[in-house]
């Protein structure tokens, strides 16, 4: 049974198509990543799935409920947390938990139980009376997540949940997400951090409102089947990139730190020494050339370039 079923979901603002016939399924207990650049349509999709925004056409079943027919029913079954960690800053940790418990209609004893759980999860024991505005980013983020899942929803939407949080807290946060998924909760998370996307069971890459690719990281990397990626280390990456772009058997290049990744055309020779000689002929001294496994970033750039073409 799928937790979320989306078919031909479309949303139009005026004459701008923000989401264009997107279809996908999310399995129960899955961590599903939504990857895309800013303005690709990630947030619009999530807002439709949460019942905040009516779809122009298409259907979305969330927890078996049609979001256009019964948005209130959807809201009872989901948790939602956005990049803004929308807590009441003037209120204390405890008051925030109680407020959100109240509007989700939790009974007093259930609220006590869940409050203890959230304090535990967020590591906020002993800081119940601290004002939310006085918490560091990581804690606020975890408190916001806690408030969003107070009512134990089976499905959780996280819209760029790690924005503005330090790397250590980001790592802790992903550990939390993994734990949630282990208890059978379905998590749909949007991000533009590629390293985070690697945590997801499956990833949907969305570009210009369309679903450009979908699959696990391993599956996604298969787009490079038959194409080799050569990593070229040199003193002058910009020059190296120009030289590589001029070659017929190089499909495209991208800069990775000080290295250049050259995607070789299908069936192209992957003779690293030969390439070194040809680069030297173009006046570029390559220190080291080797074939590498495609990273998610390679995949993302490739998919987006294909989708844009």
């Amino acid at each position: 049974m799928n937790a979320i079923t989306v078919s031909d979901l479309t949303r139009v603002f005026g004459d701008f198509v923000a989401v264009d016939h997107v279809s996908f399924d999310v399995r129960k207990g899955e961590v599903f990543g939504f990857l895309g650049s800013n303005g690709a349509g990630k947030s619009t999709t999530i807002r439709m799935l949460c019942g905040l925004l009516k779809p122009t056409s298409g259907t979305a079943l969330v927890g078996g409920i049609d979001v256009s027919r019964d948005p209130e029913g959807v809201k009872r079954r989901i948790g939602y947390m956005s990049q803004r960690f929308s807590l009441y800053e003037q209120l204390t940790v405890d008051q925030n938990i109680r407020f959100f418990g109240g509007i989700y209609g939790l009974t007093a004893e259930r609220l006590e139980q869940r409050r203890a759980f959230v304090l535990d999860m967020a590591g906020l024991h002993g800081r119940e009376r601290t004002k939310a505005s006085d918490l560091a980013g990581g804690w606020r983020q975890r408190l916001a997540l806690g408030c969003a899942i107070l009512h134990e929803p089976p499905i959780v939407f996280l819209d760029e949940p790690t924005g503005g949080v330090d790397p250590v807290s980001r790592r802790q946060f992903w550990t939390l997400i993994d734990q949630l998924a282990e208890t059978g909760i379905t998590v749909l998370v949007t991000t533009h951090y590629l390293d985070e996307a690697e945590h997801c069971h499956r990833i949907a890459i969305i570009h210009a409102g369309r679903l450009a690719a979908l699959g696990s990281t391993t599956e996604l990397k298969r787009v490079f089947a038959g194409r080799t990626i050569l990593e070229v280390q040199s003193d002058d990456p910009v020059q190296a990139m120009r030289a590589l772009d001029a070659m017929d058997d190089v499909e495209k290049t991208s800069v990775f730190g000080t290295a250049v990744h050259a995607v070789m055309r299908h069936e192209a020779a992957t003779d690293t020494d030969g390439l070194g000689t040809r680069l030297a002929g173009a006046g570029v001294q390559a220190r080291h050339i080797e074939p590498v496994e495609p990273s998610l970033e390679d995949v993302f750039l490739d998919v987006v370039a294909e989708a844009g073409a």
Binding site: C50, L52, E72, K75, R76, I78, G79, Y80, M81, S82, R84, S86, L87, Y88, E89, F100, I103, Y104, G105, C147, A148
Partner: peptide
């Protein structure tokens, strides 16, 4: 402005 409205709208609260 602070986005708390959106968070509250996510709750089953009319």
């Amino acid at each position: 402005e602070r986005g708390t409205m959106e968070q509250v709208r996510m709750a089953p609260l009319d």
